[in-house]
């Protein structure tokens, strides 16, 4: 229903010239918001081109800077509102890392905090109207998921040597079942980065696309109020999902890290 039939229609209409602007009354472009385009000019997107990705990632950085650096600049013992939000985020992730990975996982806390802050801010910033959601792109989430996956795997082998392979050998299961379980464990281990990345990107993309589809219905006067109500409801859900997905990404990172540090099943 989206671009392709519309395009085919346009092609025909271009022959018929005039009437085509009226025809485009109910047009859905739910995926247009995800297009990466250069910020200046109209050239191709090279590796170092300054694009909307750059802009919104920069805004993400500024948001984090504002919350965690400017918000805490007074170092007050009795915190201001911004400072307590920053402290809340710190305590939240610190406790998560400590609870899930144990005491020896705490030294990886800054990396996990980096991931969490980036994702949660990118998700929230992406909820602003007219914005671009960087975390809705598989390229972005896949890099983070692969980074986590590789880091955890390398760390597991460095810390435990071959003992890390014990993760796949379920010693509590009957001996006959172990090879099968090992196969399943290995598959699930290698699927981790895929599900890890697609979960985040898919959630972000899905919510934004659905909002955009509802927004497309607003063009019809009769159902416009319903559409606005639906957009509001979806937006509320998306705020929740934005946070939960960041939380889930982070806690799964912690779980994987725990596997690397304590591979015993």
């Amino acid at each position: 229903m989206m671009t392709r039939p519309n395009r085919a229609m346009m092609r025909e209409l271009e022959m018929a010239s005039e009437a085509h602007t009226e025809e485009a009354g109910l047009v859905f472009h739910p995926m247009d918001q995800f297009i990466v385009k250069p910020l200046f000019g109209d050239g191709p997107v090279g590796m170092f081109t300054i694009t909307n990705v750059t802009l919104w990632m920069g805004i993400t950085i500024l948001g984090i800077f504002a919350l965690l650096v400017l918000g805490t600049r007074r170092r007050a013992v009795i915190p201001t509102r911004t400072q307590s939000i920053g402290e809340l985020a710190y305590g939240f992730i610190y406790k998560m890392v400590e609870d899930v990975t144990g005491k020896d996982g705490v030294k990886y806390f800054p990396y996990i905090m980096t991931l969490f802050m980036f994702i949660v801010f990118a998700n929230f910033v992406g909820l602003l109207p007219m914005s671009f959601t960087t975390t809705s792109h598989i390229a972005v989430t896949a890099v983070m998921a692969m980074a986590v996956f590789l880091a955890v795997t390398i760390l597991g082998f460095v810390k435990n040597g071959a003992g890390f392979l014990g993760l796949f050998w379920v010693s509590s299961a009957p001996l006959a079942l172990r090879p099968i379980l090992a196969l399943i464990e290995i598959i699930s281990y290698f699927v981790r980065p895929v599900s890890h990345s697609i979960r985040l990107a898919g959630n972000m993309m899905a919510g934004h696309a659905v909002i955009k589809v509802f927004a497309g219905f607003a063009a019809i006067t009769a159902i416009a109020p319903l559409s606005i109500v639906a957009i509001t409801a979806m937006y509320g859900l998306e705020v929740l999902v934005s946070f939960i997905q960041a939380y889930v990404f982070t806690i799964l990172t912690c779980v994987y890290l725990k596997d690397a540090l304590h591979p015993a099943h």
């Binding site: 599900s195 959630n203 939960i244």
Partner: peptide, 13 residues
């Protein structure tokens, strides 16, 4: 939340 995330991920797929 982890359980919900796992279940939801399949729907996302």
């Amino acid at each position: 939340f982890i359980g919900i995330a796992f279940a939801e991920a399949l729907g996302i797929f």
